[in-house]
Design a protein around this nucleic acid. Sequence first.
DNA 1: CGCCAGGTTGTTG
DNA 2: CAACAACATGGC
Length: 237
Amino acid sequence: MTQYDIVYKKLLFAYGHQNWWPIIINGGSEYLSEFNKRRRTSMERLEICLGAILTQNTNWKNVEASLIVLKESGSMNVQQLADISRQELAYIIRSSGYFNQKAKKIKNFIKFIQYRLSGDIDNLDRLDLPEARNALLSVWGIGRETADSMLLYAFDRPVFIVDAYTRRIFYRLGYIDGDEEYDDIRYQIEYDLPQDILIYKEYHGLLVKHAKLFCRKKPVCEECPIQGLCLFYESEG
DNA sequence: CGCCAGGTTGTTG
DNA sequence: CAACAACATGGC
């Protein structure tokens, strides 16, 4: 077993399955469990992609509120999102913050679906992974983490997401320096783990859980389930 | 009240 | 290429 395997198993034991990505059911705020066991519908895929954009540097609760408004206003589809103005969209998603920027990003993503995917989000399945990733990255407003979130959770592609929590946790564990390039960290983790989409999905959810509960910006190490593995705990704790 | 939240882009030295 | 600013709401 490698270091990343060991951390995964310990986090899974401590927190259980997270069943990420969280999505909205019927306009409510429940989380759909077990949904990683089936293929996402087109609308779920769209919701995941919009959520990935909206959650950029933003609390998920704020994003969830925006997604509910989007759904209840009948805007959770490509055609409607293409038809409404950027200003209307910004108003709908305002709870997510950076609403002007994000409305522009979503508009660009919708144009991408229309022109590159012929209006059908499922057509991304026709591209191989490097093509799909580069295509997403070519859209203004979609960076590496956002693209990888879409690829893994909406399109079931094997990419490991490197976000601020991933960096922070593995930096404190002593596995990375923390200032490596995004893709260097991604390759290192992907190389270390079995290439298993379900593990990538679950692992990312576990890292978010762990970062929120214990490995916060100001860490709470006393009850941390992986303190025995942690350089930070050794030195600071 | 201040700080922070699952980033990305544009500008500057 | 690194460092920094801009983008903005809501929860604690």
